[in-house]
């Protein structure tokens, strides 16, 4: 129990780390995918420039997908009222739950 009590002060920290994870890993995933698609797309377009539009769509999908991570982060930050100026009082357990919910290894 002592350990849990020590963790209690860290509630808000855990939650913010969760928000960071959500935005960070979604962003990394998006960036990597853009890279993959870009490599393939460059090849396709150099052979057949008229395929540009098709390839553009493939490029737009991963390129715009990482935003969901940012969205999740924003929603969490507004849920724990960090956006708005006065962070909510969270227990360590609550914070950990936010962290686990938002991290990619859930």
């Amino acid at each position: 129990m002592n350990n849990l009590l020590a963790v209690n002060g860290l509630g808000i920290t855990f939650a913010i780390v969760g928000a960071v994870c959500a935005a960070l890993f979604a962003g990394i995933g998006s960036a990597k995918a853009v890279g993959f698609v870009g490599e393939a797309a460059a090849g396709v377009v150099s052979v057949d420039p008229s395929k540009f539009s098709k390839v553009l769509i493939l490029q737009l999908l991963p390129g715009t997908q990482g935003l969901y991570g940012l969205l999740t982060a924003i929603l969490l930050l507004s849920r724990i009222e960090v956006i708005g100026g006065s962070p909510a009082e969270l227990t360590g357990i609550q914070g950990l739950m936010f962290l686990l919910q938002l991290s990619p290894w859930q």
């Binding site: 715009t64 935003l67 969901y68 940012l70 969205l71 924003i74 956006i83």
Partner: peptide
């Protein structure tokens, strides 16, 4: 379409 919110907030923040 939630990206409307996310991008709008991102600019403002």
């Amino acid at each position: 379409y939630s990206r409307l919110l996310a991008l709008g907030l991102a600019t403002g923040c």
